[in-house]
Amino acid sequence: MSRTRVSTAADAVAQIQDGDTVLVGGFGMAGMPVVLIDALIDHGATDLTIVSNNAGNGDTGLAALLAAGRVRKVICSFPRQSDSWVFDGLYRAGKIELEVVPQGNLAERMRAAGAGIGAFYSPTAVGTLLAEGKETRTIDGRDYLLEFPIRGDVALIGAHVGDRAGNLVYRRTARNFGPVMAAAATTTVAQVTRVAEVGELDPEAIVTPGIYVDHLVEVAS
């Protein structure tokens, strides 16, 4: 029997501890696991490091977690947006730490974590401010920066349908960071619009195999 459990949002996030690194899926609101984030706010864990592409939009989801004062550090590619007032205010007040990572390096660093890669050389950001402090190596005449994996204690992601074995399918561009984060965290929680029975999903169509998924939380679509 699968180790994946169908849980309530509250049960699924209960293990998150103060100081944890939490990978949060989504690109803008597409794929953003809003129900899981709300449960994390209710749960109360604090001093968190959040890894996500953005640093919250509007006043809901990640922005609400930031507004509740639970986040010590954000690792993301693009914090500043027209509706990122919560993050902007905390950052300007010196109340939150920021590590800006180029979007592709962010994805690949999490991929590396999930794939057991110790580190890798990326050409992205060579010669820029974001190269500072990184080891440079020239390979076949091209310069690369040494990049280390980003691991999560927990990943909170949004998917479309999950079956009871934890297999996930996504919808359109809401897939974004989901598959990468699912593999990069010790515990992965997926918010899905429907929990399917085992055998219902086409095995050829599975994007994230259930081995990476610990909890499924069904939410209204």
């Binding site: 590619s77 693009f78 914090p79 500043r80 990572v101 979007q103 592709g104 992205t124 820029t128 974001l130």
Partner: peptide, 20 residues
Amino acid sequence: HTGAPDAIPAVGGAMDLATG
């Protein structure tokens, strides 16, 4: 990045695209 001291840095995929 404008380099302005009060600017919040945000790179997105720009560096990856420029390089890739």
